Simulated scan of single mutants.
Amino acid sequence: MRMSRPVSLFLLLFGVWSWVIWVTFARNLWASEDSWAADGSPTAFFVVHAVLTVVSLVLGTIIGVLGWRGLRALRRTPTSQESPTE
Rank of each mutant, 00 (worst) to 15 (best):
R2F: 12
M3I: 13
S4D: 15
S4C: 09
R5N: 08
R5Q: 14
R5V: 10
V7T: 13
S8K: 01
S8I: 03
S8F: 01
S8E: 04
L9V: 09
L9H: 08
L12Y: 05
L12D: 10
L13S: 06
L13I: 11
L13K: 08
L13A: 14
F14Q: 06
F14P: 01
G15S: 01
V16H: 01
V16K: 00
W17H: 11
W17I: 09
W19Q: 10
W19V: 05
V20I: 11
V20H: 05
I21A: 12
W22C: 09
V23G: 11
V23K: 13
V23H: 09
T24Q: 13
F25T: 06
F25G: 02
F25C: 07
F25I: 14
A26M: 09
A26L: 04
R27T: 06
R27S: 13
N28A: 14
N28M: 13
N28S: 13
W30N: 12
S32E: 10
E33G: 15
E33Q: 15
D34W: 13
D34Y: 08
S35L: 10
S35N: 09
W36G: 12
W36N: 07
W36F: 11
A37T: 13
A37Q: 15
A37V: 07
A38P: 06
A38S: 13
G40Y: 11
G40P: 03
S41T: 14
S41H: 10
P42M: 09
P42N: 09
P42Q: 10
T43F: 08
A44W: 00
F45Y: 15
F45T: 12
F46D: 02
V47H: 03
V47W: 04
V47T: 14
V48H: 11
H49M: 07
H49P: 05
A50P: 00
A50Q: 06
V51A: 14
L52R: 12
V54C: 07
V54H: 10
V54D: 09
V54I: 15
L57R: 02
V58Y: 07
L59G: 04
L59M: 13
T61M: 07
I62L: 14
I63K: 02
I63A: 07
G64W: 00
G64M: 00
G64C: 00
V65W: 03
L66S: 08
L66H: 04
L66N: 02
G67T: 02
G67S: 07
W68V: 05
R69I: 03
G70T: 05
L71C: 04
L71S: 01
R72N: 04
L74G: 01
L74K: 01
R75P: 01
R75Q: 12
R76D: 02
T77C: 07
T77G: 06
P78H: 08
S80C: 06
Q81Y: 08
E82C: 02
E82P: 00
S83R: 14
S83N: 11
S83A: 13
P84R: 03
